Simulated scan of single mutants.
Amino acid sequence: MNLSDEARVVTRSRILAALGLGAAAVVVAGCGGTGPPVGAGSGGPGVGGYNFSRLTCSAPGSLPGRTVTVMLADAGMMSMMNGPAPMGARMLLRAVPATVPAGQVSFVAENVGWRTHELVVLPLQPGYAAGRRVSGSDGKVDESGSLGEASASCAAGAGDGLASGTVGWISVTLPPGRYELVCNQPNHYIDGMRQELDVTSG
C-alpha cells in the first residue's frame, strides 16, 4: 500500500486529532520542504508544544505491504538541549493505523520533535502490556528479539538515530500477534514513547 502526499497529510491529521491538536498543525506538518518551526504552544516551540517543522525528507512513494506512519515527538524542549532526556519529559510516539493484517508492513517514522529519536519494533509476549518494559541504568529497554529498527535519517534501516525533521523507514514481515513500537533513546521509553501494534490474521 503506497501513501501519496495527500494520504500522508490525512494520516498526520488523524495523529494530530488524536493528540488534540487543530487542523492548523496539519499544514505545518506537511510533506517536504524546509524552514523554521511555525506556531507556538504551551511548553515550548511548535504547535501545542510540539515542533511541527517541515520534514526535510520523505520515505519513498512506494513501500511494500501496508504502511504504518509513526510520529515521534517531544515537547517543552529547546533544540539546543543535549544529552539524555530527563525522566518525566513530555514525549510521544503515535502510530496510524494501530492494527494491520499479517504480512509485509512498512513503518515510516517521522521525527517532528527536537531531539534525536528512533523506532524499534519489538514483540509483546502473551500477558504483557505495552509500556511495562523495565529500563536499565542506561535509560533503555532490552531490545532482544527486535524485528527491525528505523533510525537512519532520510534512509532505510538502522543508523545513528533520526535527527529532528527527518524520516526513516523499514519494511518487515509480521505474523499475527501483538507488538510494541518504541523509541529506545535514553529515557524516551519511560517518557511515553511506546505504543502497541496489533497484527491480525486477516
Results as ranks from 00 to 15, higher is better:
S62M: 07
A40N: 08
L16V: 01
G165D: 09
V9F: 01
G32D: 10
F52N: 05
A18Y: 14
M1F: 11
L174H: 01
A24H: 06
Y179G: 06
P84L: 13
S201P: 10
G76D: 10
Q195A: 15
Q185R: 08
G103S: 11
G65F: 05
S53M: 11
L119H: 07
P126Q: 04
G103A: 12
E110M: 03
C31R: 07
G113F: 12
D160W: 02
A29N: 03
V68I: 03
E110P: 01
V26P: 00
D138I: 03
S79L: 13
V28R: 12
V70T: 02
V100K: 15
G76N: 11
L3R: 05
S58L: 02
P123V: 08
Q185K: 04
A73E: 15
L92R: 14
E6V: 01
M1I: 06
H117W: 07
E180A: 12
G35E: 04
V26E: 01
G136L: 10
N184M: 02
S13K: 01
S171N: 12
S146M: 14
C31V: 02
A17C: 04
A73I: 05
T116W: 09
I15H: 09
S153M: 07
G192N: 04
L72E: 14
W114Y: 09
C31Y: 01
M80W: 13
L19F: 13
G39C: 12
A150C: 07
R115I: 00
P97W: 08
R12S: 02
V96N: 12
V134T: 11
V112E: 15
D74S: 07
L21H: 15
R54Y: 03
N2V: 10
V28E: 15
D142L: 15
D74C: 06
G136F: 13
R132Y: 04
L174V: 01
P123D: 04
G103Q: 10
A98L: 00
P176N: 08
G30K: 04
T200G: 03
S4V: 01
S62H: 09
A73L: 13
I170W: 07
A152C: 12
P86C: 00
L162M: 07
G41S: 11
A98R: 15
G20C: 08
